[in-house]
């Protein structure tokens, strides 16, 4: 009882307790189920959760959607790949350095684009995504062009490298869990509060002596770095990158993830990633009509449940329950 009340008083404690529980469960999965093909899928879920959580932070707190998360995933992947493959920096360090590049680019884009509101942000970030895709395809001296880059070193440092899926599993999930904790803390902190207020009325926030623009740019940078980390982890896990890595189609899949899991909840982003991974794996994998199905589903979900499928269904279940008792 006393521990529970203690935890309840402090959002950071509550977040930490939840994420610790979650991570423990995740880390026990291979112990219980043994090593199998599913590990590979779970590693991709850990990776994809990062851009999804990043976008969820942005849309949940500032109410804006960006189509640049595929591009930042690509920048993170290519920057870390180039730094480690061409320059020989170890992958742990190159993953971190790549994030500085992502943050700088995001700051520049944010400073220009965040004066725009809602769907204007989407359109402006879409043009940025198109430019990034073009640069990756055309600057073949640096990026390998359409062929992409091969033989990217495995994740590791100081001569110790991950060699098997189970090792990646135990490296990547703690990273994803820590970044989830970071995002949850940020969301329940004064920063999250200020951003929610800005979403409702930027002029009022300004009148309180708070520089609203700084917060909007800040969350855009953090959100983009989440995607950048995902990209770097991806590059070192699969060992190659191509222009398809972090394409605009990928950015739209991330939006699809939020449409399934909810646009304003970080845990929902995780659920969304699981759903879309299962869809890709068992229903749509190689189908030509995958894009059509995703597109139609996206439109349908957003028409019926503007906050996302999962929150929409939860609301529906609740209202049914109350409907019956009333």
């Amino acid at each position: 009882m006393s521990i529970l009340t203690f935890i309840k008083q402090d959002a950071v404690h509550l977040n930490t307790a939840r994420v610790a529980l979650f991570l423990t469960a995740i880390l026990l999965v291979p112990v219980v189920f043994g090593i199998g093909y599913y590990l590979n899928m779970m590693i991709f879920i850990a990776i994809l959760s990062l851009p999804a959580m990043g976008l969820s932070l942005l849309s949940g707190l500032s109410g804006q959607l960006a189509i640049s998360h595929g591009a930042f995933f690509a920048i993170g992947a290519y920057a870390s790949a180039i730094l480690s493959t061409n320059i020989g920096i170890n992958p742990v360090l190159s993953t971190l350095l790549a994030q500085m590049i992502v943050a700088l680019v995001a700051a520049a884009i944010g400073a220009v684009v965040l004066r725009l509101r809602s769907h204007y942000l989407a359109i402006a970030t879409l043009s940025f995504a198109i430019i990034v895709e073009l640069v990756i395809k055309e600057w073949s001296g640096l990026t390998g062009g359409m062929q992409g880059m091969l033989n990217i070193p495995a994740m590791g440092a100081l001569g110790r490298e991950a060699t098997s899926d189970i090792q990646y599993y135990y490296i990547y999930w703690p990273i994803t869990a820590l970044l989830l904790l970071f995002a949850l803390n940020l969301s329940s902190s004064r920063i999250g509060r200020a951003l929610r207020a800005i979403r409702e009325g930027e002029p009022i926030v300004d009148s309180l002596g708070i520089q609203a623009a700084e917060y909007k740019i800040g969350i855009y940078i953090i959100s983009s770095v989440f995607a950048g980390v995902g990209g770097a982890l991806y590059a070192h896990f699969v060992g190659f990158v191509t222009p398809a890595t972090g394409s605009i189609m990928f950015a739209i899949e991330i939006i699809m993830v939020l449409a399934l899991g909810g646009f304003d909840r970080l845990w929902g982003a995780l659920v969304g990633v699981v759903l879309i991974t299962l869809l890709n794996e068992y229903a749509l994998g190689f189908a030509d009509y995958k894009k059509i199905i995703l597109g139609v589903t996206l439109i349908a979900v957003m028409l019926v449940f503007p906050r996302g499928l999962l929150p929409g269904l939860i609301d529906l279940a609740r209202s049914n329950k109350y409907g019956r008792t009333a």
Partner: peptide, 26 residues
């Protein structure tokens, strides 16, 4: 969409520290 307490806390927001990193790290 915020509580009354949070509304008032936004008034005092600028007096108190805590950047993106510090808040995320808790």
């Amino acid at each position: 969409s915020l509580s009354i307490l949070e509304n008032a806390m936004l008034g005092g927001h600028r007096f108190h520290k805590g950047g993106f990193l510090a808040c995320g790290l808790g």
